[in-house]
Design a protein around this nucleic acid. Structure first.
Lengths: 152, 152
DNA sequence: TATTGTTATACTCTATAACTATA
DNA sequence: TATAGTTATAGAGTATAACAATA
């Protein structure tokens, strides 16, 4: 049979093959790796970009709210925000109303980085999803959102 | 309007909302957390269970092949396999044909642990996917498999 | 020359617990 | 009493580079 030689078939996965959790993990990791390649040189990572995105949509928001929106624990937000402030992408100012909190805003540089990444990431998603038409993509996102909605 | 008070609405995500990669990450994390709860007390983790599953379906397979099937780097397989051997779940014996390799097989205890976890994990997936009918579930897995197929 | 397994190492993400200062 | 932010710390997954033994 032509074409049947030298095919490096992969080992069967066993019961794992039928678990949604496994496929989510693999697909997520694949997207994560490609994300890193896509934004190489910008200093961005998935978590950091997520934070910038939420702040850009909610100027003046505080850490806790950002973390809640993204599923990041308070304790872990601290160094992430500090990192973004140190990079000059985020501005952290004492909140006028609540002296415990900080109001976060994007800096000009932060807005530039987001814009640059958005361009690259749009291409990155388009590349990975090149075999997906509009319906497929919408169906996938809809299914994933239903899963996310389970979060306590 | 009744019911509109005290709704702790979450902050908007901004551009992030439309990225498949983000939703994959959140959904995968959710499944991972619930996986851990489901198998609590068995000593299993997602990666370890994956390895056991592949070995169970390919008795005598070596580390490299398992890693390739699961997307785990050779270097990281070493301690994982050692861990499973030390737990008495995996047997590692010199391969008869290739003296560089080890042949991996499940121990009786390993088979027991897999069986126990399979039962719990089936319930765990059923719980998370309780709002998914057979068609939804199949559609989701099919979409995720198409993404995984992109892997080099 | 390629491959199996190995060691060493580093980075990132996430988790928990305990603390402070404000509300 | 609850919340915003913090510190310290640990666990886990993944990444790269370099090496020995064998194919």
């Amino acid at each position: 049979m032509a074409g049947s030689e030298n095919v490096p078939r992969r080992a069967a996965l066993g019961p794992l093959e039928d678990f949604v959790g496994y496929h989510l993990r693999r697909a997520s990791h694949l997207f994560g790796s490609d994300f890193a390649r896509a934004v190489e040189g910008t200093g961005m990572r998935q978590v950091l970009f997520g934070i910038l995105s939420v702040v850009s949509a909610n100027s003046g928001i505080n850490q806790g709210e950002v973390g809640r929106a993204l599923g990041i624990k308070r304790a872990n937000m601290v160094s992430l925000i500090t990192e973004l402030v140190d990079l000059g992408l985020l501005d952290r100012q004492a909140d006028a109303d609540d002296r415990r909190a900080f109001a976060l805003t994007l800096t000009g540089k932060g807005a530039d980085v987001i814009a640059e990444c958005l361009e690259r990431l749009t291409a990155h998603e388009a590349r990975l999803l090149s075999s997906f038409d509009t319906t497929d993509r919408a169906a996938l996102i809809a299914l994933l959102r239903r899963l996310e909605a389970l979060e306590s």
